[in-house]
Deep mutational scan, measured.
Amino acid sequence: MKVIFLKDVKGMGKKGEIKNVADGYANNFLFKQGLAIEATPANLKALE
């Protein structure tokens, strides 16, 4: 799943980066902790 990092995550990515991560990792950790959001077309447009 493609995500946009909202904060730096050690060993994974930096704020503003777009990366592919495992679905479970994104849903169970990154999204719940507020560290990333899904890289949807609307979210990608908002990032620009």
Rank of each mutant, 00 (worst) to 15 (best):
G16T: 02
K45T: 08
A46I: 14
V3E: 00
A42Y: 08
G34W: 06
N28E: 10
G34A: 07
N20V: 15
K14C: 13
M1K: 09
I37E: 04
F31I: 12
G24V: 13
V9E: 02
G16Y: 10
P41C: 11
E38I: 06
N20S: 13
K2L: 15
F29D: 05
A26G: 05
G16K: 02
K32A: 12
V9N: 01
G11N: 07
Q33R: 15
V9M: 04
A42T: 08
G11E: 06
L47C: 10
A46G: 11
N27R: 15
L44W: 03
G16M: 06
N43Y: 05
A42K: 09
L47M: 12
I4S: 01
L30R: 00
K15S: 07
G13W: 10
A39W: 11
A46C: 14
K2V: 08
A42G: 10
K45H: 09
D23E: 14
T40A: 04
L47Y: 14
G13F: 10
N28F: 12
K14V: 11
T40N: 08
A26Y: 13
K7S: 09
Q33S: 11
G34C: 13
K45V: 11
A22R: 13
I4F: 06
E48P: 07
K15Y: 06
I18C: 07
Y25R: 06
F29S: 05
Y25N: 05
A22W: 10
G13S: 03
L30K: 01
K10D: 14
L35F: 10
A46W: 14
D8K: 05
T40E: 03
K19G: 07
I18E: 04
G16L: 05
G13D: 01
K45R: 14
G24H: 15
A39I: 03
K32D: 06
N43V: 10
N20C: 15
F29G: 03
P41S: 10
G11H: 08
D8S: 09
K7V: 12
L47N: 07
N20D: 13
V21Q: 01
A22D: 14
L35D: 04
G11T: 04
A36W: 02
L35Y: 08
L30M: 03
D23K: 15
T40K: 02
E38R: 10
E48T: 14
Q33K: 12
V21H: 01
V3S: 01
K32C: 10
F5S: 00
K7W: 10
E38V: 06
P41K: 09
K10S: 11
G34M: 09
T40F: 03
N43D: 05
L44S: 04
A42M: 09
M12Y: 14
K10E: 13
K45G: 08
F31H: 02
K32H: 08
L6D: 00
A46H: 13
A36V: 09
V9A: 03
A22C: 11
I18T: 06
K19W: 12
L35N: 03
E17P: 00
M1Y: 08
D8F: 07
E38M: 07
I4K: 04
E38C: 08
A39V: 06
N27K: 15
K14T: 09
I18L: 08
K45A: 14
Y25M: 11
E48S: 12
I37C: 07
F5R: 00
L35P: 00
E17Q: 11
G24D: 15
E17I: 03
Y25C: 10
L35H: 03
E17N: 02
K10V: 12
N43M: 08
G11K: 06
G13A: 15
K14E: 07
K15R: 12
E17W: 05
E48Y: 12
E48Q: 13
G11W: 06
G24P: 11
K14S: 10
M12C: 14
A22H: 14
V21F: 07
N27L: 15
A22Y: 11
M1F: 10
D8I: 04
F31L: 11
F29I: 11
K32I: 11
A42N: 11
L6S: 02
V21Y: 04
K19M: 12
G24E: 14
G11V: 02
K14M: 12
N28K: 12
G24S: 12
G16S: 03
I4Y: 09
L47E: 07
G34R: 09
N20W: 15
K32L: 10
P41Y: 11
L35K: 04
K7L: 06
V3Q: 00
A22G: 11
F31K: 05
I37N: 02
D23Q: 15
L47V: 07
V9P: 00
K45C: 13
A46Q: 12
Q33H: 15
G16H: 08
A42V: 09
P41F: 11
N27Y: 15
G24A: 14
P41L: 12
A26P: 04
K14N: 10
Q33G: 07
K32P: 13
A42E: 15
N27E: 14
L44A: 03
V9Q: 02
V3I: 10
K14R: 13
A26M: 08
K10F: 14
N28S: 14
G13V: 03
P41E: 13
D8Y: 07
K19V: 12
K7E: 12
A36R: 01
K19P: 00
I18W: 04
A36L: 03
I18Q: 06
K15M: 10
A22I: 09
M1W: 07
F29E: 05
A22T: 13
K19A: 10
Y25T: 10
K7I: 11
M1A: 03
V3F: 01
F29N: 05
I4M: 08
E48M: 12
F31V: 07
N28P: 04
K2T: 10
V21D: 01
F29H: 09
P41T: 09
E17F: 04
N28D: 09
F29V: 13
I4V: 11
G24L: 12
K7A: 13
K15E: 07
A39K: 01
L47F: 13
L30P: 00
L35V: 06
K2E: 08
F5P: 00
K10H: 13
K45E: 11
Q33V: 09
T40S: 10
A22M: 11
G13Y: 07
Q33D: 08
L47D: 04
